[in-house]
């Protein structure tokens, strides 16, 4: 990292960034976003009694055990103890979904079980219930390394995710790579630019004063460069996640994380 464009206002960044990118997985010194946080925020994440993300996990546990839908089964009714049945699941999502012939993210997978197995009304994207269930399921993988599935059927979607990651977008004409590969560790206004690894979602973001999904985070980054953000649930966001997870392979799941 060089300091070619230190502390520039976002508007000036467009003119100054050279924009290079490293291939996925090749990143040396791969670091979670938590590494770039203040000691106070790291402490908040590390202590389950002060991490507000734990509220979502606790809500998720309650929902896991609650019977729902026409079928009247709870998640636990079919899957039993989440600590056993859901252990490691979040480390290998997005995964290939046979039914749609496309990758599906963890929240989407949970939504499918709710729709087809419980025969209950769908949970909207970003609804507190879906966030809570996703946080609870992902929390069962905390501390485990991200291990994307080596599934041939995912390759073309992951490749598309990489293209999206490297494509310049928005009025500021920046790609994800311009910031997260070429400029990580440097400052953008008051925030340090992390490498952009999706290790801790859903997570509590202080700026949101709430727990939110990776898609919410990605939309924030797109809006930040004044691009039109993909809608929640858009295939492009799942493809981006697929690429980001491959890029983050080996880092450990932190859910529920805390971020500024």
């Amino acid at each position: 990292m060089t300091g070619r464009a230190p502390r520039l206002l976002a508007g000036l960044l467009a003119a100054c960034l050279a924009g290079s990118s490293a291939p996925a997985g090749d990143m040396l010194d791969k670091r979670s976003g938590a590494d770039f946080m203040s000691p106070e925020n790291r402490a908040m994440q590390a202590d389950d009694m002060s991490n507000p993300g734990m509220f979502a996990v606790l809500d998720g546990e309650e929902l896991w055990n609650r019977p729902e839908g026409a079928n009247g089964r709870s998640c636990a009714g079919c899957h039993g103890e989440a600590a056993t049945s859901m252990r490691g699941v979040a480390t290998r999502y997005p995964a290939f979904d046979e039914r749609s012939g496309r990758p599906i993210d963890l929240a989407g997978r949970i939504g499918e079980c709710r729709r087809t197995r419980q025969e209950a009304s769908p949970l909207p994207h970003e609804s507190p219930e879906l966030i809570a269930l996703t946080a609870y399921v992902a929390h069962q993988s905390r501390g485990m390394p991200i291990s994307p599935p080596q599934d041939e059927r995912l390759a073309q979607f992951r490749e598309n995710g990489r293209r999206l990651y490297e494509r310049r977008i928005g009025q500021l004409d920046l790609s994800c790579a311009s910031c997260h590969d070429a400029r990580w560790g440097e400052r953008l206004g008051g925030s340090v630019m992390p490498q952009g690894h999706p290790t801790a979602y859903p997570l509590y973001r202080l700026e949101w004063q709430a727990v939110g999904s990776l898609q919410r985070r990605l939309r924030n980054c797109m809006i930040g460069v004044r691009a039109e953000a993909f809608a929640f649930g858009a295939p492009e966001l799942i493809e981006l996640e697929l690429y980001l997870m491959e890029r983050a392979a080996g880092l450990t799941v932190e859910t529920p994380g805390v971020r500024p």
Binding site: D48, M49, D59
Partner: peptide
Amino acid sequence: MTRALINA
């Protein structure tokens, strides 16, 4: 419903 975390 009350959701609180108490550490004592």
